[in-house]
């Protein structure tokens, strides 16, 4: 019985990708089931193979990383994505954290760090750089950055949010946004959790308080 963690690796730089794949293949816990070189084929491969964890670059041809994440999470909200990048700018970290990725890691990281991140994400935890976590904690304390409750949720969740507070049922939302009933329900659940409310009525009250009801 094969209990290895199944991975997809997406990066348009062939040498870099092969290096990562080789590194991972030598690890007893991992199995790379598919390699992709652009965002579009990554989304297709992820939908087809359902990997345990997906490792991906941000700057990729055909469909950039952020759009690919959005697209994938739209179909598979439970997908576990680890972003592997050369960008050490804080703006990238914030954007990818908000996008719904579960982890962010620089390509110059060691094999041990990469393995640790994959294991943590596979177990349902997240893995983000300390510098980002520090900024997020600080902004939470001062309340400076989180001016809008919508900053916390992904673009797709935002669409669902507005339909929920407009009084649409989950079935209607699924139809309007062209997603399965289960996906719509998952989005709704995550919005409630992120906004720290327990049901739709509370969510609507919160939206009203924040002036988000149209």
């Amino acid at each position: 019985m094969n209990n290895k963690i199944r991975l997809i690796v997406a990066d348009d730089h062939t040498l870099v990708r092969q290096g990562i794949v080789q590194m991972l293949s030598q690890h007893e816990l991992f199995e790379v089931i598919c390699e992709c070189e652009d965002g579009q084929s990554m989304v297709q491969a992820a939908l087809k193979h359902n990997p345990d964890v997906l490792l991906m670059d941000i700057s990729m041809p055909k469909m950039n990383g952020l759009v690919a994440i959005d697209k994938l999470l739209h179909h598979r909200p439970e997908a576990k994505i680890l972003v592997l990048t050369m960008h050490d700018e804080i703006e990238y970290m914030h954007a990818l954290h908000q996008s719904g990725a579960k982890g962010y890691m620089l390509k110059e990281s060691s094999t041990e760090q990469l393995a640790e991140a994959i294991l943590m994400i596979h177990q349902g935890q997240t893995y983000f750089p300390k510098v980002l976590l520090k900024e997020l904690a600080e902004s939470k304390e001062t309340g400076k950055v989180k001016e809008s409750i919508l900053d916390n949720i992904t673009r797709r969740e935002r669409e669902v949010f507005f339909l929920v507070v407009a009084g649409r049922t989950t079935r209607e939302i699924a139809e309007l946004l062209d997603m399965s009933h289960k996906t719509a329900e998952n989005h709704r659940g995550r919005i409630l959790a992120k906004m720290n409310v327990s049901n739709t009525a509370e969510l609507i009250r919160l939206a009203a308080r924040k002036g988000l009801l149209e």
Binding site: N64, G65, H87, E91
Partner: peptide, 18 residues
């Protein structure tokens, strides 16, 4: 600015100012 292609104008302006 790669960030403009990757993340869009808002993130790129934030980055520029920083």
């Amino acid at each position: 600015p790669r960030i403009l292609d990757d993340l869009g104008l808002a993130a790129a302006l934030n980055w520029l100012v920083r």
